[in-house]
Design a protein around this nucleic acid. Structure first.
Lengths: 140, 140
DNA sequence: GGTGACCCTATAGTGACTTCAGGCTTATAT
DNA sequence: ATATAAGCCTGAAGTCACTATAGGGTCACC
Protein backbone atom coordinates (compact mmCIF):
# COMPACT_ATOMS: atom_id res chain seq x y z
CA UNK A 1 0.00 0.00 0.00
CA UNK A 2 3.02 2.26 -0.46
CA UNK A 3 2.91 5.06 -3.01
CA UNK A 4 4.49 4.28 -6.37
CA UNK A 5 8.26 4.44 -6.27
CA UNK A 6 8.39 5.14 -2.59
CA UNK A 7 9.92 3.28 0.32
CA UNK A 8 8.53 2.39 3.71
CA UNK A 9 10.70 3.30 6.67
CA UNK A 10 11.65 -0.35 7.07
CA UNK A 11 12.81 -0.62 3.44
CA UNK A 12 14.76 2.60 3.75
CA UNK A 13 16.34 1.30 6.92
CA UNK A 14 17.33 -1.97 5.22
CA UNK A 15 18.65 -0.12 2.16
CA UNK A 16 20.94 2.09 4.23
CA UNK A 17 21.84 -0.13 7.15
CA UNK A 18 20.11 2.18 9.59
CA UNK A 19 17.71 1.33 12.38
CA UNK A 20 14.12 2.48 11.93
CA UNK A 21 14.30 4.44 15.19
CA UNK A 22 17.44 6.21 14.03
CA UNK A 23 15.70 7.38 10.86
CA UNK A 24 12.85 8.83 12.91
CA UNK A 25 15.44 10.41 15.15
CA UNK A 26 17.16 12.06 12.16
CA UNK A 27 13.81 13.48 11.12
CA UNK A 28 13.18 14.93 14.56
CA UNK A 29 16.72 16.30 14.60
CA UNK A 30 16.12 18.06 11.29
CA UNK A 31 18.68 16.10 9.27
CA UNK A 32 16.19 14.31 7.11
CA UNK A 33 13.08 16.14 5.89
CA UNK A 34 9.70 14.75 6.88
CA UNK A 35 8.50 12.55 4.02
CA UNK A 36 4.98 12.32 2.64
CA UNK A 37 2.61 9.98 4.39
CA UNK A 38 0.40 7.24 2.98
CA UNK A 39 -3.31 7.30 3.79
CA UNK A 40 -2.43 5.16 6.82
CA UNK A 41 0.03 7.70 8.11
CA UNK A 42 3.03 5.59 7.17
CA UNK A 43 6.13 7.49 6.07
CA UNK A 44 6.73 7.15 2.30
CA UNK A 45 10.29 7.99 1.30
CA UNK A 46 11.47 9.12 -2.13
CA UNK A 47 14.81 8.37 -3.79
CA UNK A 48 15.95 11.84 -2.68
CA UNK A 49 15.48 10.68 0.88
CA UNK A 50 17.46 7.55 0.12
CA UNK A 51 20.30 9.62 -1.33
CA UNK A 52 20.29 12.01 1.60
CA UNK A 53 20.26 9.27 4.20
CA UNK A 54 23.06 7.43 2.41
CA UNK A 55 25.10 10.60 2.55
CA UNK A 56 24.39 11.01 6.25
CA UNK A 57 25.34 7.42 7.01
CA UNK A 58 28.58 7.57 5.06
CA UNK A 59 29.58 10.80 6.73
CA UNK A 60 28.69 9.39 10.16
CA UNK A 61 30.70 6.25 9.40
CA UNK A 62 33.64 8.55 8.69
CA UNK A 63 33.13 9.94 12.17
CA UNK A 64 31.62 13.33 11.35
CA UNK A 65 29.35 14.61 14.11
CA UNK A 66 25.71 15.30 13.27
CA UNK A 67 26.52 19.01 13.34
CA UNK A 68 29.31 18.49 10.84
CA UNK A 69 27.02 16.36 8.67
CA UNK A 70 24.43 19.13 8.85
CA UNK A 71 27.06 21.63 7.67
CA UNK A 72 28.25 19.35 4.87
CA UNK A 73 24.65 18.82 3.79
CA UNK A 74 23.98 22.55 3.79
CA UNK A 75 27.05 23.15 1.66
CA UNK A 76 26.27 20.40 -0.80
CA UNK A 77 22.86 21.96 -1.41
CA UNK A 78 24.45 25.16 -2.69
CA UNK A 79 26.18 23.86 -5.78
CA UNK A 80 27.90 27.09 -6.79
CA UNK A 81 29.89 28.03 -3.72
CA UNK A 82 33.48 27.08 -3.13
CA UNK A 83 34.56 23.61 -2.21
CA UNK A 84 37.02 25.00 0.31
CA UNK A 85 34.44 25.13 3.10
CA UNK A 86 33.93 21.41 2.69
CA UNK A 87 37.67 20.88 2.59
CA UNK A 88 38.03 22.84 5.83
CA UNK A 89 35.51 20.70 7.68
CA UNK A 90 37.22 17.56 6.41
CA UNK A 91 40.66 18.80 7.40
CA UNK A 92 39.53 19.77 10.88
CA UNK A 93 38.03 16.36 11.23
CA UNK A 94 41.25 14.72 10.10
CA UNK A 95 43.19 16.66 12.73
CA UNK A 96 40.70 15.42 15.33
CA UNK A 97 41.22 11.84 14.20
CA UNK A 98 44.97 12.26 14.44
CA UNK A 99 44.65 13.50 18.01
CA UNK A 100 42.51 10.51 18.92
CA UNK A 101 44.91 8.10 17.22
CA UNK A 102 47.82 9.57 19.16
CA UNK A 103 45.98 9.32 22.47
CA UNK A 104 44.85 5.78 21.82
CA UNK A 105 48.34 4.67 20.83
CA UNK A 106 49.87 6.08 24.01
CA UNK A 107 47.10 4.51 26.02
CA UNK A 108 47.59 1.16 24.35
CA UNK A 109 51.25 0.98 25.18
CA UNK A 110 50.67 2.08 28.79
CA UNK A 111 47.95 -0.49 29.25
CA UNK A 112 49.81 -3.33 27.60
CA UNK A 113 52.92 -2.74 29.70
CA UNK A 114 50.63 -2.77 32.73
CA UNK A 115 49.34 -6.19 31.70
CA UNK A 116 52.81 -7.58 31.17
CA UNK A 117 53.72 -6.51 34.70
CA UNK A 118 50.87 -8.48 36.21
CA UNK A 119 52.38 -11.55 37.81
CA UNK A 120 49.03 -13.23 38.40
CA UNK A 121 49.56 -13.19 42.14
CA UNK A 122 47.38 -11.67 44.81
CA UNK A 123 45.89 -8.20 44.56
CA UNK A 124 48.33 -7.02 47.19
CA UNK A 125 51.16 -7.42 44.69
CA UNK A 126 49.15 -6.56 41.60
CA UNK A 127 51.06 -4.13 39.43
CA UNK A 128 47.95 -2.94 37.61
CA UNK A 129 46.25 -1.74 40.76
CA UNK A 130 49.55 -0.40 42.03
CA UNK A 131 50.29 1.55 38.89
CA UNK A 132 46.87 3.12 38.88
CA UNK A 133 47.25 4.15 42.52
CA UNK A 134 48.59 7.66 43.15
CA UNK A 135 52.24 8.51 43.88
CA UNK A 136 51.85 8.56 47.63
CA UNK A 137 50.30 5.10 47.66
CA UNK A 138 52.89 3.64 45.35
CA UNK A 139 55.75 4.55 47.66
CA UNK A 140 54.50 2.45 50.55
CA UNK B 1 37.78 26.90 58.02
CA UNK B 2 38.58 23.43 56.73
CA UNK B 3 39.19 20.57 59.16
CA UNK B 4 42.84 19.80 59.87
CA UNK B 5 44.46 17.80 57.12
CA UNK B 6 41.42 17.89 54.91
CA UNK B 7 40.81 19.29 51.46
CA UNK B 8 37.99 21.44 50.14
CA UNK B 9 36.37 20.21 46.94
CA UNK B 10 38.19 22.91 45.01
CA UNK B 11 41.59 21.84 46.34
CA UNK B 12 40.82 18.21 45.62
CA UNK B 13 39.77 19.19 42.11
CA UNK B 14 43.01 21.12 41.56
CA UNK B 15 45.10 18.27 43.01
CA UNK B 16 43.62 15.70 40.66
CA UNK B 17 42.86 17.73 37.56
CA UNK B 18 39.14 17.13 37.94
CA UNK B 19 36.30 19.61 37.74
CA UNK B 20 34.43 20.30 40.96
CA UNK B 21 31.16 19.24 39.33
CA UNK B 22 32.69 15.97 38.22
CA UNK B 23 33.71 15.16 41.80
CA UNK B 24 30.17 15.77 42.99
CA UNK B 25 28.99 13.60 40.11
CA UNK B 26 31.30 10.75 41.19
CA UNK B 27 29.85 10.99 44.67
CA UNK B 28 26.28 10.77 43.36
CA UNK B 29 27.30 7.89 41.12
CA UNK B 30 28.72 6.01 44.12
CA UNK B 31 32.34 5.98 42.98
CA UNK B 32 33.61 8.29 45.67
CA UNK B 33 32.22 8.01 49.19
CA UNK B 34 30.52 11.07 50.68
CA UNK B 35 33.11 12.94 52.74
CA UNK B 36 32.59 14.57 56.11
CA UNK B 37 31.24 18.09 56.12
CA UNK B 38 32.53 21.20 57.86
CA UNK B 39 30.12 23.12 60.10
CA UNK B 40 29.22 25.14 56.98
CA UNK B 41 28.27 22.05 55.08
CA UNK B 42 31.35 22.17 52.86
CA UNK B 43 32.77 18.82 51.81
CA UNK B 44 36.05 18.01 53.64
CA UNK B 45 38.08 15.34 51.87
CA UNK B 46 40.70 13.08 53.47
CA UNK B 47 43.87 11.74 51.86
CA UNK B 48 41.99 8.47 51.29
CA UNK B 49 39.63 10.41 49.08
CA UNK B 50 42.57 11.93 47.25
CA UNK B 51 44.07 8.49 46.65
CA UNK B 52 40.76 7.07 45.46
CA UNK B 53 40.04 9.95 43.14
CA UNK B 54 43.55 9.76 41.69
CA UNK B 55 42.96 6.10 40.98
CA UNK B 56 39.65 6.88 39.29
CA UNK B 57 41.17 9.61 37.16
CA UNK B 58 44.10 7.50 36.04
CA UNK B 59 41.84 4.61 35.14
CA UNK B 60 39.49 6.97 33.27
CA UNK B 61 42.45 8.48 31.43
CA UNK B 62 43.33 4.95 30.33
CA UNK B 63 39.83 4.75 28.91
CA UNK B 64 38.19 2.44 31.44
CA UNK B 65 34.46 3.05 31.73
CA UNK B 66 33.02 4.06 35.09
CA UNK B 67 31.65 0.54 35.43
CA UNK B 68 35.10 -0.90 34.82
CA UNK B 69 36.61 1.55 37.30
CA UNK B 70 33.97 0.51 39.81
CA UNK B 71 34.96 -3.13 39.29
CA UNK B 72 38.68 -2.38 39.58
CA UNK B 73 38.01 -0.40 42.74
CA UNK B 74 35.98 -3.23 44.24
CA UNK B 75 38.76 -5.69 43.46
CA UNK B 76 41.51 -3.50 44.85
CA UNK B 77 39.62 -3.29 48.14
CA UNK B 78 39.86 -7.05 48.62
CA UNK B 79 43.59 -7.48 48.93
CA UNK B 80 43.67 -11.25 49.11
CA UNK B 81 41.89 -12.38 45.95
CA UNK B 82 43.58 -13.21 42.70
CA UNK B 83 45.01 -10.60 40.41
CA UNK B 84 43.63 -12.41 37.38
CA UNK B 85 40.26 -10.66 37.60
CA UNK B 86 42.06 -7.35 37.24
CA UNK B 87 44.13 -8.74 34.41
CA UNK B 88 40.97 -9.87 32.63
CA UNK B 89 39.38 -6.43 32.77
CA UNK B 90 42.59 -4.87 31.49
CA UNK B 91 42.92 -7.37 28.64
CA UNK B 92 39.33 -6.86 27.55
CA UNK B 93 39.95 -3.18 27.55
CA UNK B 94 43.09 -3.59 25.48
CA UNK B 95 41.15 -5.54 22.87
CA UNK B 96 38.62 -2.72 22.77
CA UNK B 97 41.38 -0.17 22.21
CA UNK B 98 42.79 -2.26 19.39
CA UNK B 99 39.42 -2.33 17.69
CA UNK B 100 39.14 1.45 17.97
CA UNK B 101 42.68 1.94 16.67
CA UNK B 102 41.94 -0.22 13.66
CA UNK B 103 38.73 1.65 12.86
CA UNK B 104 40.34 5.05 13.28
CA UNK B 105 43.25 4.11 11.05
CA UNK B 106 40.95 2.97 8.24
CA UNK B 107 38.88 6.09 8.66
CA UNK B 108 41.95 8.31 8.58
CA UNK B 109 43.16 6.94 5.29
CA UNK B 110 39.71 7.19 3.72
CA UNK B 111 39.28 10.74 4.84
CA UNK B 112 42.75 11.87 3.85
CA UNK B 113 42.40 10.44 0.35
CA UNK B 114 39.12 12.32 0.16
CA UNK B 115 40.90 15.56 0.99
CA UNK B 116 43.61 14.97 -1.59
CA UNK B 117 40.90 14.58 -4.23
CA UNK B 118 39.41 17.96 -3.48
CA UNK B 119 40.42 20.27 -6.30
CA UNK B 120 39.22 23.42 -4.52
CA UNK B 121 36.73 24.13 -7.25
CA UNK B 122 32.99 24.58 -6.96
CA UNK B 123 30.79 22.29 -4.91
CA UNK B 124 29.44 20.83 -8.11
CA UNK B 125 32.82 19.24 -8.79
CA UNK B 126 33.75 18.61 -5.18
CA UNK B 127 35.09 15.10 -4.75
CA UNK B 128 34.38 15.04 -1.02
CA UNK B 129 30.68 15.64 -1.46
CA UNK B 130 30.67 13.30 -4.43
CA UNK B 131 32.37 10.50 -2.57
CA UNK B 132 29.96 10.75 0.31
CA UNK B 133 26.98 10.64 -2.05
CA UNK B 134 25.44 7.24 -2.74
CA UNK B 135 26.20 5.06 -5.75
CA UNK B 136 23.23 6.20 -7.80
CA UNK B 137 24.14 9.85 -7.36
CA UNK B 138 27.80 9.31 -8.17
CA UNK B 139 27.02 7.88 -11.60
CA UNK B 140 25.34 11.04 -12.85
C1' DG C 1 -10.07 -14.67 11.48
C1' DG C 2 -5.89 -15.09 13.83
C1' DT C 3 -1.19 -14.08 14.34
C1' DG C 4 3.02 -12.10 13.62
C1' DA C 5 5.47 -8.45 11.24
C1' DC C 6 5.37 -3.79 10.45
C1' DC C 7 4.02 0.99 11.38
C1' DC C 8 2.71 5.10 14.58
C1' DT C 9 3.50 8.52 18.77
C1' DA C 10 5.34 10.01 23.01
C1' DT C 11 8.38 9.45 26.64
C1' DA C 12 12.32 7.85 29.20
C1' DG C 13 16.91 5.90 29.48
C1' DT C 14 22.09 5.59 28.28
C1' DG C 15 27.18 7.39 29.72
C1' DA C 16 29.77 10.66 31.65
C1' DC C 17 29.52 14.39 32.49
C1' DT C 18 28.27 19.93 31.98
C1' DT C 19 25.39 23.79 32.71
C1' DC C 20 22.05 26.47 34.98
C1' DA C 21 19.28 28.67 38.53
C1' DG C 22 19.21 30.32 42.94
C1' DG C 23 21.27 30.93 47.21
C1' DC C 24 24.94 30.73 51.19
C1' DT C 25 29.99 31.76 52.90
C1' DT C 26 34.61 33.33 52.72
C1' DA C 27 38.47 36.13 51.12
C1' DT C 28 40.18 40.27 49.29
C1' DA C 29 40.22 45.18 48.14
C1' DT C 30 38.99 49.72 49.25
C1' DA D 1 33.15 48.54 57.31
C1' DT D 2 31.53 47.34 53.09
C1' DA D 3 31.44 45.90 48.46
C1' DT D 4 32.40 42.36 45.47
C1' DA D 5 34.46 38.40 43.69
C1' DA D 6 35.44 33.71 44.40
C1' DG D 7 34.11 29.48 46.22
C1' DC D 8 30.70 26.40 48.12
C1' DC D 9 25.81 24.23 48.28
C1' DT D 10 21.48 21.76 46.04
C1' DG D 11 18.51 20.15 42.49
C1' DA D 12 17.25 19.96 37.93
C1' DA D 13 17.94 20.18 33.13
C1' DG D 14 20.91 19.83 29.02
C1' DT D 15 24.45 17.37 25.97
C1' DC D 16 25.25 13.68 22.03
C1' DA D 17 23.51 10.23 19.22
C1' DC D 18 20.96 7.32 19.66
C1' DT D 19 18.13 3.08 21.96
C1' DA D 20 14.33 1.27 24.41
C1' DT D 21 9.71 1.07 26.18
C1' DA D 22 4.69 1.52 26.39
C1' DG D 23 0.64 1.40 24.11
C1' DG D 24 -1.56 1.37 20.18
C1' DG D 25 -3.08 0.85 14.82
C1' DT D 26 -2.34 -1.76 10.19
C1' DC D 27 -1.00 -5.25 6.93
C1' DA D 28 0.30 -9.78 4.78
C1' DC D 29 -0.42 -14.47 4.85
C1' DC D 30 -2.43 -18.98 6.00
Amino acid sequence: MMLFGSLSIGKLAAATGTKVETIRYYESAGLLSAPERTKNNYRAYSSQHLARLSFIRRARALGFSLDQVQALLGLSDQKDISCSAVDLIAREHLAEIDRKLKDLTTLRSELSSLIVQCGHGKISECRIIETLAPEAERQK
